[in-house]
Design a protein around this nucleic acid. Structure first.
Lengths: 342, 342
DNA sequence: CGCCGATTATGATACGTTTCACCCTAACGC
DNA sequence: GCGTTAGGGTGAAACGTATCATAATCGGCG
């Protein structure tokens, strides 16, 4: 059925070893032979079998990336950054979408483990550290993405979410808001709890400000819309005067839920700030204030760390990279400014 | 280094064949033996080597999916649909992003071919038919996605883009627009040319309406913004009174480019309609009219066709599924209606 | 002309799994 | 008690590649 090196070798009148050399180290083979083998390959339509190659090599040329939500532009940008960086070293990136679900996460880890990936990038949901440690023992380096490793036992690249939460809420307070709602969840997700923690710290500096936490099942537009509608249904006096959403998807959904068929004005009645600064944030109904993260840079840096860790034999080289987020103010939190966007 | 079935077998005191049976057909093995083997697996931390498995099987348990733009929600939704359907048959989906670039597309095809994927889903950019035919000869079925196969030589699942283009422009004409601009590109992409074709047909029915084609390099927010700014820079009299964007990403960008620091009103001065109806369309500055496609359904149907084709031995079973798009009217094309959204 | 080193080519081997033809044993029917 | 059968288990073979020790070839030089 399938064409193998053996048949190529036969047609070209050389040994299989030579064919392999043409494929992998053409400089070690005479020009004339190279040509002859290449012709045979062409003629037979030979395509190298990656499974055999991997089996022999003991390791694949791919790295696995498990993200929380492949539909979130923040993660697609991150993936794009990772892919570009990996490509420079001839590595492919396998993308897995855990959808914030520990079970799905586990099944992707299993898949990647069976594939003997060259490395693993993950934004963890469940309790995966033991599994990751097992992987490491096998020689598969792991880098935690968008999440700081608590005990420096893994390399990680993250953005300071506590600082980001602090920024967001400080900003809301500065524009005069006092009844703030935090919308996000599930609470088990580190990014969410850190952003909330930052928000709380900002509050601690202003005793007159209160915060209400509204937990969601996931960080999606749909969930945001549901919460928005719930808030809209409240009597005016019980509504917050500002909302800090744990990400932009929620914020966009909130905007829909709050404004549709409603007299609520954003930001006049309720100011709104999101997180991630996805490309759509600047063009939503009311352009969205947000906390910007360098998504593509996170991805490429993660691959960088991964490769560095893979190259190091002594395994005490765990690096923790932490980027600082940036406040982007747009119309959703500014009554006066005519946002000039970017 | 790595643990193999052999060592598991040794520890459990059985043969390798039995271990394999426990892994793949546990019902064929005595309960007691199963337990013993499972314990050995656990104890040694054995993880099945997928490369060896594939090598033996001759085929992988993954299907490849090559899309035009992994950052476009239309395609992430499509991918999600495909993944969910594939999972039901125990298949993984490998996602490749061609970024509308023939070279990248080629390299993903090569990768998938080397991986001996069980099947291929592709939204083609370049001239890939010969390569796909070669794949088919090898026994790898292919389904064209979001693109009708011209000569019924491949299975395909698509949406009638000509009809969609017709819908969009008919709608613009109906609300009284006469100077229409079509924004999209590159022209080589079938979806773009079909939508334009549909637009032209709609025009043919109204001799007083003119169309201007503005070609873009890609279908992204950035490109849309650039075109929007170019239109904004024109003298008022030379601006179109309606724009049909080849997808929502462009439309969102156009919205940004047209409205920022500008007195142009949408839809009063320029009506705007996009294509795909991504989740963000309903929550943009001006909620966007669009042509809706059943993205997840396209993905799952494509996998369906793929599996059906893979099951068929006689190879004359190419099916062409064509869905009809749906016009979604929102504020960007309606001066009067206070959009009730969904 | 013969020797040597360098350059090329060879081909057996191993990677870890699944499969399949075969063996063993115990139970069953007659 | 013997033949038959079925259920469990065995282990060698094969999948297609890369590697590496070995062999062949060549050119140059003494």
């Amino acid at each position: 059925m399938s064409v193998s090196v053996r048949e190529v070798a036969a047609l070209a009148g050389v040994s299989v070893g030579t064919v392999s050399n043409v494929l992998n180290r053409p400089d070690k083979v005479t020009e004339a032979t190279v040509v002859r083998v290449r012709e045979a390959i062409e003629q037979l339509g030979f395509v190298r079998n990656d499974a055999a190659r991997q089996l022999r090599a003991g390791r694949s040329r791919s790295i696995g990336l498990v993200v929380l939500d492949a539909g979130n532009p923040f993660f697609t940008d991150l993936a794009r950054g990772a892919e570009a960086r990996a490509l420079r070293d001839g590595l492919a990136v396998l993308l897995g979408n855990s959808d914030e679900d520990a079970e799905r996460e586990r099944s992707y880890l299993e898949l990647f483990e069976e594939q003997r990936v060259a490395g693993l990038l993950i934004t963890p949901v469940g309790h995966v550290v033991p599994r990751l440690e097992r992987l490491r023992e096998r020689g598969t380096p792991t880098v935690l993405v968008d999440r700081q490793a608590e005990n420096a036992t893994f390399s990680s690249v993250a953005v300071d979410d506590v600082a980001g939460g602090h920024m967001a809420v400080s900003h809301l307070v500065e524009i005069g808001r006092r009844r703030i709602a935090f919308v996000g969840g599930p609470a088990g997700i580190r990014q969410v709890s850190d952003r909330l923690e930052g928000a709380r710290r900002a509050l601690a500096e202003h005793s007159t400000v209160t915060i209400e936490v509204i937990e969601t099942e996931s960080l999606t537009v749909l969930q945001g819309r549901a919460v928005g509608e719930a808030i809209r249904a409240r009597p005016k006096s019980e509504r917050p005067d500002a909302i800090f959403a744990a990400n932009d998807l929620l914020a966009v959904g909130l905007l829909q839920g709050l404004m549709i068929l409603s007299d609520i004005r954003v930001p006049e009645d309720i100011a709104l700030i999101g997180y991630d600064d996805i490309a759509f944030a600047s063009s939503s109904v009311v352009p969205l204030s947000s906390i910007r993260q360098p998504s593509a840079l996170i991805g490429s840096t993660a691959v960088d760390l991964l490769l560095r860790e893979a190259a190091t034999t002594g395994d005490f080289a765990h690096e923790q990279v932490v980027f600082q987020p940036e406040l982007i103010v747009r119309a959703s939190t500014s009554t006066t400014v005519a946002s000039s966007d970017e």
